[in-house]
Design a protein around this nucleic acid. Structure first.
Length: 856
RNA sequence: GCAGGCAUGGCGGAAUCGGUAGACGCAGCGGACUUAAAAUCCGUUUUCCGUAAGGAAGUGGGGGUUCGAGUCCCCCUGCCUGCACCA
């Protein structure tokens, strides 16, 4: 017996597929298309198990849809701009471009060894001028369409490194590299007007019926549409006004304070004459920009001493606070507080001794407000202590209050979104330059299209703090395209989320000299199946949805939605190991001894086995896919990835699991290479009378049921179940020991079907088995097998018989036996009679083909 | 803090519509083959009581709906993801 040599076999078929150009595709309007896309990788150095899982899932879909007759587009590329390249440049003195392209070369080779059915002719890298020049054109188009604009916004500023920090680079309020206290600073930056599409982005979620429900929910909450009112309060003793946004205008009579954001102009104005307030605002600015940080910070306020007039109660005034929990980016940056009916306001009021006046009552309302606000707002509620609103329910009171506000000319009902415009400016080198020029005379001037691309300069250094583009000696100095005067290039580059917001469309015509080609993109888009991590559920997916709408607005394509189908995969996890001194250890540094204890390979000290956690460099619980492929082959790695856990759940990578997959790989190979019992000749027909051969018929039934079941599993993304069914089919093949001609026929049929069914999952093994079975066709060109309905239908069913809900017997009966007959059979059953023990039968529930429940 | 999700044997998981809980695999145990090991093959494996036949309990915890709940509803606990400059 020739032991299956994965290395030779996989190499052989990869060469064959490449030589045949098996996965190169062209748009072909005469054929149905299917676009499969996995989220493209960041070229961080080497591929990791998360990539292996992601691309295995995508490849199963791509190969399956191909067998189903679709013209399948399955491209690959690189999300190649970003911060890590600049960190590498600083730490290792490598140019970001060199570092990135080296990584791409390594990772491309690793991906190729996985045997993915990718059209490599369409490969793109977002850091390549051939990609980002088109992005610059799109930026200009968005600008022209009014979808890109400038405004001020807050960033995390590191005063020592003189740079803007990402939220993840701020640790306990300090810069990760410098250790300096980070401060919030306002910068003028570029924004994309995602809020222009807020309503559409929200409403269109409903049509995304092949997206996970939870992702749609998360996006819905993120967009956060709320109906309410804008309302101006008059500041007492001045003609200033403070405009607030509220969703609860019905509770205005219960208001006890106003609060404005520390970034609000009113706060700044008051701080000019109030040193303590200025200090309070400065303190608020020391909190980072991350919302999680703001939300968990202790709620604090400062009484400005100013008062505003209550809009409905003459002579009544409210204090104005500056409060750290009021966001300048949401609503109008100011709120009114009604402590009785909002938890946050109540906490604030208790802390600063402000009045708590209940104005809403209802069936579950407490007699008195303690530490819990009463926030019911349904039709069973009644407004009290509220003048003209008294007696109304909350929804009616909202309408009445808004009508009054409008009549008084103080404001109006509005719809507000939590969603904020997308800030795309980054003060960094390794990104797509924003094609704009700042002229002292003309203002902001777009780079003329015939001057694109704005190339990144190569000669940059990272040994000075700040943005290399900003202190490059010549790069930013240009003439104004309008007036010819000396002007400055925009030195900000694009957020890398912009790069990943249209790459899927670029794949349709990756070498075109316009960003997109109408015919190509209209044929291929939308992506039929997009696959990636749940961590992208909001930002990346929302930005891509926005950008596709922007492209549509600019006339580039016809669809609004980039991804018709979405699948979010789980993470790859592994046990963690720590040495006696607490150091994390890699799985390769430890061994499990026969008694089950774990020790370090070097030195033999005992090892603590920790929790199973997401593979990460910091915890060293990583397994290198390259090593696994060397040792077991790509098919085994792919098979194990698919085998145990459902794709949307986290999975645990274990050595034992891979070994099990490896053993099964060998077992499948043996089925074709040296079957235990004889196979019929290739292409032979079912022998005469074979349909009555019981063993053969049983195997044939199993085979055809497996075809049907695996087809369902692949459609439903339950790949782990598909794997289990292949195991079951293999068991059935080996359990059929009959040597009749009919059995030999059934066996060949079963083995050939198994070979074709595993092809999307273990493509190399499948090809090799197919060849070993005597075929000279290649499986990548074979259609998917069809199940024979005559063989998938069962004639008899097993009925569970319960007494009082407890299983007491099972009945083997003909399919579709009627309820009366089932009831009679069940009541006659010996075990059932014994359990009933003469008690009167009160009721019998019969569900045909399923269950009989006798109630006593 | 807010939003979303997940929880089933020693482990990963299965259970299509509310209808036999534990398919399939891993690990374990027993056996065959072997000088031996690996590989392979056969058997066994939710827990508790029982020699057995059989019985009882059981899907993170508590409550509810139902003839019947892993599945539906309410409350709680733990863990995971995201929070707008990581990608």
């Amino acid at each position: 017996m020739a032991r299956y040599n994965s290395k030779e076999v996989e190499d052989k078929w990869q060469r064959r597929w490449a030589a045949d150009g098996a996965f190169a595709v062209q748009a072909d309007p005469s054929r149905p298309k299917y676009y499969v896309l996995e989220m493209f990788p960041y070229p961080s150095g080497r591929i990791h198990m998360g990539h292996v899982r992601n691309y295995t899932l995508g490849d199963v879909v791509a190969r399956y849809k191909r067998a189903r007759g679709f013209n399948v587009l399955h491209p690959m590329g690189w999300d190649a701009f970003g911060l890590p390249a600049e960190n590498a440049a600083q730490e290792k003195k490598v140019h970001p471009a060199a570092w990135t392209y080296d990584n791409i070369a390594t990772m491309r080779a690793e991906l190729k060894r996985m045997g993915l059915s990718l059209d490599w002719d369409r490969e793109i890298a977002t850091c390549h001028p051939d990609y980002y020049r088109h992005q610059q054109k799109l930026f200009l188009d968005l600008h022209k369409a009014g979808l890109a604009y400038r405004k001020e916004s807050a960033v995390n500023w590191d005063p020592v490194d003189m740079t803007v920090l990402a939220n993840e680079q701020v640790i306990d309020g300090r810069g990760w590299r410098s250790g300096a206290l980070v401060e919030k600073r306002l910068l003028s930056q570029w924004f994309f007007k995602i809020t222009h599409f807020a309503d559409d982005l929200l409403q269109a979620l409903e049509g995304l019926d092949r997206w996970p429900e939870r992702v749609r929910l998360m996006q819905q909450n993120w967009i956060g549409r709320s109906e309410g009112a804008r309302l101006a309060f008059d500041v007492v003793g001045s003609d200033e006004k403070i405009e607030i946004f509220t969703t609860r205008p019905d509770t205005l009579f219960g208001a006890s304070f106003l609060a404005v954001s520390p970034d609000h102009p009113f706060a700044a104005a008051r701080a000019a004459g109030d040193a303590a307030l200025a200090e309070f605002i400065a303190e608020c600015k020391r909190t980072g920009t991350a919302e999680a940080e703001l939300a968990t910070a202790e709620k604090k306020g400062y009484d400005t001493g100013a008062r505003v007039a209550h809009p409905f109660v003459d002579g009544h005034t409210l204090p104005v606070y500056v409060a750290n929990f009021v966001l300048m980016d949401y609503g109008s940056g100011a709120i009114f507080g009604c402590p009785a009916h909002d938890q946050r306001d109540l906490d604030f009021a208790r802390k600063y001794g402000l009045p708590v006046l209940p104005v809403v009552t209802g069936p579950n309302a407490p007699a008195e407000i303690g530490d819990v606000a009463y926030d019911e707002d349904g039709p069973a509620t009644r407004i009290v202590n509220s003048g003209f609103l008294d007696g109304l329910d909350v929804p009616a009171a909202k309408k009445a209050a808004i009508a009054r506000i409008k009549a008084d000319g103080r404001g109006e009902g509005t719809v507000n979104f939590r969603l904020r415009d997308w800030g795309v400016s980054r003060q960094r080198y390794w990104g797509c330059p924003i094609p704009m020029i700042h002229c002292d005379h003309c203002g902001v001037v777009p780079v003329p299209e015939d001057q694109l691309p704005v190339l990144l300069p190569d000669d940059v250094t990272f040994d000075r703090p700040g943005n290399p583009l900003d202190h490059h000696p010549t790069w930013k100095h240009v003439e104004c395209p309008q007036c010819g005067a000396k002007a400055r290039r925009e030195t900000d580059t694009c957020d890398t989320f912009v790069d990943s917001s249209w790459y899927f469309a670029r794949y349709c015509s990756p070498r075109a000299d316009t960003p997109l080609v109408r015919d190509e993109v209209d044929y291929w888009m939308s992506v039929d199946q997009y696959i990636g991590g749940i961590e992208h559920a909001i930002l990346h997916l929302l930005y891509a949805r926005f950008f596709t709408r922007a492209l549509q607005t600019c006339g580039y394509l016809k669809v609004a939605e980039p991804f018709a189908g979405l699948f979010t995969q789980g993470m790859v996890c592994h046990e963690t190991f720590r040495g006696a001194d607490g150091r994390w250890l890699t799985p390769e540094e430890v061994e499990r001894r026969a008694d089950g204890s774990w020790h370090e390979l070097a030195g033999g000290q005992p090892v603590t086995v920790g929790r199973v956690e997401k593979m990460s460099k910091s915890k060293k619980n990583v397994v290198d896919p390259g090593r696994i492929i060397d040792q077991y082959g790509a098919d085994t790695a792919r098979w194990f990835m698919l085998s145990d856990s459902p794709p949307d759940r986290d999975m645990e990578w274990t050595e034992a699991g891979v070994q099990g997959a490896w053993r099964f790989t060998q077992r499948l190979w043996r089925l074709a290479d040296e079957p235990r019992d004889p196979l019929a000749e290739k292409g032979s027909a079912l022998p005469e009378g074979g349909a009555d051969d019981a063993d053969a018929l049983a195997l044939r039934r199993e085979t055809h049921k497996t075809i049907a079941a695996i087809s369902r599993d692949l459609d439903a993304f339950t790949f782990n179940k598909a794997v289990a069914r292949i195991h079951e089919l293999a068991n059935s093949i080996e359990d059929c020991r009959s040597v009749t001609p009919a059995a030999a026929f059934a066996r060949r049929e079963a083995i050939e079907v198994a070979t074709r069914l595993i092809a999307p999952m273990m493509p190399h093994l499948a090809e090799e088995m197919w060849q070993r079975l005597g075929h000279d066709t290649v499986l990548v060109d074979m259609p998917w097998p069809e199940a024979d309905p005559a063989l998938t239908r069962e004639d008899s069913v097993t009925i569970a018989v319960q007494v009082g809900g407890k299983l007491r017997a099972t009945l083997e009966v003909a399919r579709d036996m009627d309820a009366k007959a089932l009831e009679a059979l069940a009541l006659a059953d010996e075990a059932v009679v014994r359990v009933i023990a003469g008690r009167p039968v009160r009721k019998v529930v019969v569900v045909p083909n399923r269950i009989v429940n006798v109630v006593v």
